[in-house]
Amino acid sequence: MSEPLLAFLYFFILLTAVVAVLLDDLLSSFISLSVTGVLMATVFALFRAPDVALTQAIINSGLVTSLFLVAYSQTQRTPSPAGECRECPFWLRWPGAALVSSLFAAVLFRGLYVLSGDRIPGSTSAHYLSQTLEETGALNVVAAILLDYRAFDTLGETTVIFTAVFGISLLLSGGKYVHSGHGLSFIVKRGMALLTPFILLYAASILFLGHLTPGGGFQGGSVFATVAILICVVYGTNFEAARISPKSKETFEAGGAMLFVFIGLLGIAWGGGFLANLSGPFPAGTPGSLFSGGNMLLLNLAVGMKVGAGLSSIFYTMIKILELEDDSWPS
């Protein structure tokens, strides 16, 4: 990997970030932020982190931007007064903030500078790189870490997703929901109809082959959620709700979490410990085939169900307010 390429990418990351910060138009700044996300995904790929690059591109550049668009369309914006705010204390204006941030950057860089030098991976990482095939039967080391060595943390992460979904539906609850039958134009609908099976296939392949190639439950689930969002946008929420009702989304989400825990409990029942993989009842299989890696296939499925259903129900909850009558909002 060449340094000039990296420098080029870093420069553009910073440039798009600055643009995102300084622009007044919110739409443009979020698109610029999305570009920053894509550039960062490229950098991640250059740093030989394909899983992370995939996740960054899907979630940070794609999903977050679409959530922003929903939030942006739901808010009433009075045009903000130009110039600085008059009643703010003097240190809050941009020179003060710039001073504090640059000081922060200097302190941070000074601390990080000590870390530059020859990178020697720690003993844990060396263990993971060398022993993954024997101990888990999977080929994707990162997936093995997430779903075998540190599967309990992944359970916690799904709890975080659940908390976010729960919080959002709590915040945006109440009010009537009016289905919208509109969608986009006919050409878009036909095009989408042609494209959807392939997107779903892609999502399924990322999800189910996560233990062999870069990917996994999070990435696959997010692409499934993206499909749901696309259908919402292209065909209208009426269509989408008929196909995948909100109730079934909740069931999927809960089902994913319960599947995860159930697999963990199977490990206990076998005598191996919670979320035990090869020391539980799960076979290692031949490395490189679909049914290998012990319980990682099932765990990927569980995580994918959870993430996909969770993210699409977040979108659905935020969309729901879009079609309310203004005076039926509970204030």
């Binding site: 703010c88 204390p89 240190w91 809050l92 903030a97 504090v100 922060f104």
Partner: peptide
């Protein structure tokens, strides 16, 4: 003051 930014500024400083 009630300003969120003010509190954050104080914390960071």
């Amino acid at each position: 003051s009630g300003f969120l930014r003010g509190y954050l500024f104080a914390a960071v400083a």
